[in-house]
């Protein structure tokens, strides 16, 4: 009961923090839409072309804009010592990383998920593809959150090269992009591709607490 209570108030704390800085999340979304505009301006407003490559553009921009906020994944809590306080209250580092991953999914990725329909209208993507896009992005964004947790915990002690975290996420998200864009373009093999995505999710989900927990512990030791 105690544990559940603590988990609930951990998320209440995350909610409060994210709501007080809601402009950060909205800036992410604005970045996403403006990059869609720029893409369309650079390609030209030809309907056929846009709807042909729209899904790929959408996925690329979702990936890029969700890696933008990675810097803040653990950094604030690490610098003001809250990570240590939470750890001393009985949460292991691996468990903290799982909780944080879901928090990132809820407060950073879900707003993107909600803004996908508008982006689909802008990019002329057919309505029947929306379901596949939702399915692939809800799994893919969880994978991205796990990868983000790993890379940002690795880069906590890295004071010089902030971009390295985003590069680490992007290099490992290549298979995610391949399979999730594949889902939308090859609807007949939907089941097999979504199973592959699930498999990747499970692998990443298993690696995440180990790798992030170890990196968090290392950074706190040597801070």
């Amino acid at each position: 009961m105690n544990l559940l209570n603590k988990i609930f108030f951990f998320y209440y704390r995350e909610y409060k923090l994210n709501m007080s800085g809601i402009q950060d999340i909205l800036t992410n979304i604005i970045f996403f839409f403006i990059s869609i505009f720029i893409f369309i301006f650079s390609i030209g407003p030809d309907k056929e072309t846009i709807s042909f490559i729209g899904v790929g553009i959408l996925w690329t921009l979702l990936l890029l804009s969700s890696t933008l906020s990675l810097r803040k994944f653990y950094q604030d809590d690490f610098e003001n010592g809250n990570l240590l306080i939470i750890h001393l209250n009985g949460f292991s580092f691996g468990f903290i990383s799982i909780l944080k991953t879901f928090s990132h999914f809820l407060f950073v990725q879900v707003p993107f998920l909600l803004s996908i329909p508008i982006a689909c209208i802008l990019l002329n993507i057919a309505n029947d593809k929306l379901f596949y896009l939702f399915a692939s992005f809800s799994i893919g964004s969880l994978i991205l959150s796990c990868l983000g947790s790993i890379s940002s915990s690795m880069n906590l002690m890295n004071q010089r090269n902030f971009l390295l975290g985003s590069v680490v996420v992007m290099i490992f998200s290549v298979p995610v992009i391949i399979f999730s864009v594949g889902i939308i373009n090859m609807e007949e093999s939907f089941n097999s591709l979504i199973n592959i995505l699930f498999g990747i999710l499970l692998i990443v989900f298993a690696i995440n607490p180990w790798a992030s927990g170890l990196c968090l512990k290392l950074s706190l030791e040597n801070n």
Partner: peptide
Amino acid sequence: TYIADTTSSLRKL
């Protein structure tokens, strides 16, 4: 209870 030399209260709240 451990108190480090940082301010652990959440600055935004």
